[in-house]
Nucleic acid binder design. Structure first.
Length: 480
RNA sequence: CGGGGCGUAGCGCAGCCUGGUAGCGCGUCUGGUUUGGGACCAGAAGGUCGGCGGUUCGAGUCCGCCCGCCCCGACCA
């Protein structure tokens, strides 16, 4: 690498040595987002929004297939409604932004800018739901919410963020819980199959559940700095909101009952997780299934520029039907500059075509996951590219999973747990007796929080805090 | 919200201690030669030095307040 190239790469701090600075530099330099004039709020630039659109499109297909429909509820939540469910308002009150004036006039009742929409949706559910025939009611909306965070970071924690929020109502506890798990599985597939981020799937311990829920399901990912991040949640709200807002239906047995509700969401935080999980010192790295541009073609003109460009255009046309492809025919940049630029922007597959390739009837393939470049024949390239993209997708997931699995350690004593957390070993797996006092003492001693109780992990061993037989397996970690 | 750091051209920075006409590199623009890992030559444009106030003949530089961003904690998707 030339000295000039080294100087350029230095603009992105080292991922292993300055992780936080590296993250911010990649988000800004890859063109995903920018700071806005409003404190704690970010501007999502078109390239970043394209990632969100990819998530939207995939999820929208899943939601439609499972019978969910999209609606829209107001941005403003009157204070009186927000206060109806006591635990809910207590949980969100410190983060609510309030509107107090309309024009110059002070409002009779101040309006919360929604931190989440349960309180503005439930009164409508009370109006719309009369009979068991009206259930289940499976609604969601794509919107933004505002939580006045004290410390903010691009994508990971901003004062306003985009998400979708699902809000469903059911006739029975079993139906509502099944809904939570259906959504959880959709989210798991989004994370693992599309974003190539492995997750632990399970329940939150009671201290970490959503304010107003009976229990919360979660997907927890491990980032390269060995901190856990909550990638998605699905809440079983029981009858808490139904009782607070009077959402009742007449059942088959001619008795009036409260509905059972759920809510669930994933946010633009996923984009931050994607950046952290796969990026490297060259910048962003995107798994093919989510990459807005999957294949970039860089022509190397040489002395016969027109011939090469013609071949490159023909190549782009052939691939266009099987991949999201972009031909970089800008003549103001050299091929080497383009290589680095597209690597920084995370494009998973690059095709180079120059005079030698035109003569040999081939193109040169470079994968964002690394490895040597290889020549592929132009003949049959329409079949080769989709297979190649799937190979690269699998490489992304395998790499992330190897990292995650390599950073799960077991601890059966508080000392071992404390040491593992202190040395940032990642997820620390341990037992729990279900006693709140034991969890509290572990939190106090380690600074880590219980992230997830996996659905498919049977309890084993003993609680490290009290030595009694364990009732659950818990993964502890420091968390975002 | 506590502790630390920073704010000067689109980006990265120097200048501040010790006040005296605002600089460097990259990028941008024009023309030409180039193009297989961040090209080269020649010329040019680009700034209310984060904001407000104070000290001073004079403030990017000194003092006060405010705002924003980054890092480490606490709180949170």
């Amino acid at each position: 690498m030339s000295t000039e190239a080294q100087a350029f790469v230095k603009e992105i701090p080292s991922k292993s040595e300055q992780f936080s600075e590296w993250y911010t530099a990649v988000v800004l330099k890859a063109g995903l987002a920018d700071y806005s004039p409003v404190r704690g709020c970010m501007v999502i630039r078109p390239y970043g929004y394209a990632l969100w659109e990819g998530i939207y499109r995939w999820l929208d297909d899943q939601f439609k297939a499972t019978g969910h429909v999209t609606a829209y509820f107001p941005l403003f939540v009157p204070e009186s409604l927000l206060k109806k469910e006591a635990e809910h308002v207590e949980g969100f009150a410190p983060q609510v932004a309030w509107v107090t004036h309309g024009g110059d006039d002070e409002l009779a009742e101040r309006l919360a800018v929604r931190p989440t929409s349960e309180a503005i949706i439930m009164p409508m559910y009370a109006k719309w739901i009369q009979s068991y025939r009206d259930l289940p009611l499976l609604l969601l909306q794509w919107n933004s919410v505002v939580r006045w965070e004290k410390a903010t970071r691009l994508f990971l924690r901003t004062a306003e963020f985009l998400w979708h929020e699902g809000h469903t109502a059911h006739a029975t506890l079993e139906d509502a819980d099944a809904e939570c798990r259906t959504i959880l599985e959709i989210y798991r597939r989004l994370l693992e199959e599309i974003l190539a981020i492995p997750v632990l799937v399970g329940r939150k311990p009671p201290t970490e559940k959503f304010a107003g829920a009976d229990w919360t399901y979660t997907l927890e990912a491990l980032m390269p700095d060995r901190q856990a991040i909550q990638a998605g949640t699905s809440h079983f709200l029981g009858q808490n909101f139904a009782k607070a807002f009077g959402v009742k239906f007449l059942d088959r047995d001619n008795t009036e009952k409260h509905v059972w509700t759920t809510s669930w969401a994933v946010t633009t935080r996923l984009i931050g997780s994607l950046v952290m999980a796969h990026g490297d010192d060259r910048g962003l790295a995107l798994p093919p299934r989510i990459a807005p541009t999957q294949v970039v073609i860089v022509p190397i003109p040489g002395k016969e520029g027109e011939r090469v460009l013609t071949a490159a255009r023909a190549l782009a046309d052939r691939i266009r039907g099987v991949a999201r492809v972009r031909l970089d025919d800008r003549d103001e940049y050299t091929p080497g500059w383009k290589f680095n630029d597209w690597e920084m922007r995370g494009v998973p597959v690059r095709l180079e075509i120059g005079p030698r390739d035109v003569a040999a009837g081939q193109a040169v393939v470079a994968r964002r996951t690394g490895g040597p470049k290889e020549a592929v024949p132009l003949d049959g390239i329409e079949e080769r590219i989709p297979a190649l993209l799937e190979e690269v997708q699998a490489e992304f997931f395998a790499r992330a999973k190897a990292f995650r699995d390599g950073h799960i350690v077991s601890a059966d004593t508080v000392e071992a747990l404390e040491e593992a957390v202190r040395e940032r070993r990642g997820f620390v797996r341990t037992g729990w007796c279900n006693d709140q006092a034991c969890e509290d003492s572990i939190r106090d001693r380690t600074g880590a929080s219980p992230r997830v109780i996996p659905l498919d992990d049977a309890p084993e061993g003993t609680c490290p805090a009290c030595g009694r037989p364990s009732q659950a397996t818990v993964y502890y970690a420091r968390a975002y």
